[in-house]
Design a protein around this nucleic acid. Sequence first.
DNA 1: GCTTGACCTCAACCATGCTTGAGGTTTTAC
DNA 2: GTAAAACCTCAAGCATGGTTGAGGTCAAGC
Lengths: 155, 155
Amino acid sequence: MVEVKQNSKAKSKASELSVGEVARRSGIAISALHFYETEGLIKSQRTKSGHRRYGRDVLRRIAVIRVAQSAGLSLQEIARAFAALPDGRTPSARDWAKLSAGWRDLLSERILQMTRLRDDLTGCIGCGCLSLDQCPLRNSEDRLSSEGSGARLLL
Amino acid sequence: MVEVKQNSKAKSKASELSVGEVARRSGIAISALHFYETEGLIKSQRTKSGHRRYGRDVLRRIAVIRVAQSAGLSLQEIARAFAALPDGRTPSARDWAKLSAGWRDLLSERILQMTRLRDDLTGCIGCGCLSLDQCPLRNSEDRLSSEGSGARLLL
DNA sequence: GCTTGACCTCAACCATGCTTGAGGTTTTAC
DNA sequence: GTAAAACCTCAAGCATGGTTGAGGTCAAGC
């Protein structure tokens, strides 16, 4: 819809990026960008001819996606969090901060679980209790799996 | 090959378990047990007619599998670790302990990464640096992803 | 004006970790 | 001796997170 004139490959003043540029700058494959778009994680305008043009904030969005993924969130969870971002305007620092606060707590929780797991592991796999209901390892395992809202692991 | 006489459903003295029993006791679906077997994570003898019979240690093996999974290991990684277990005899407590020691270190490493990630997240998503190379978040992200020997997350 | 590279869509495929179902045998219980 | 429950195999399917390739269009440089 929004038509953009592109002056050169350098495109130093264009505020809209092509998919190739976004891929190069973010280190994400074009196919992944397409995929993120179909999953509603990022958006693009199209040129008259159908080529994608991204606003500058897409780079931040992508960065946030990768960070969240490495923290163990699924794309669906990330999309859900993104849904809380403002619709019309570009998200502000405060918007992102709100988002990250939630994830921080989630991470803290998962770190706690893993720590518990590790500590149990220290004394427990070698002991005889693993197959018994009393074993702390098996119980913390239960804690983990019963909390999962879908994905298996710490997802 | 090993033929086993089964006296009743109670089967209190049988040292070999049927797949249904293992499923019931471990809480793992039969289909998952089959799957674990095809992946080399557990083994079974067969009765003359082809039904599976498991040794008692299978329950511990399964417990270890679930724990390792909840720690974020893939079945392949678990299988690799299991490959180090003794071939002929039932693994001893010491064998399991050795195995768990490796995983414990791995867990510690991942806990460290997540902690770093969380701490960076605290100050960083809301700040302006996320799209820059200097951002600690993006760098710790790199640390994470460059270490991955396959799976994306903490896997 | 035409080649080249960047882009488009859509369908198929890969790995992981299973589940489901079809179609058939075995074991158990009455 | 027969019905039901438990088991078997093999193929297909599901979700996640993408990649790969075919077949075609668009844009830029010479």
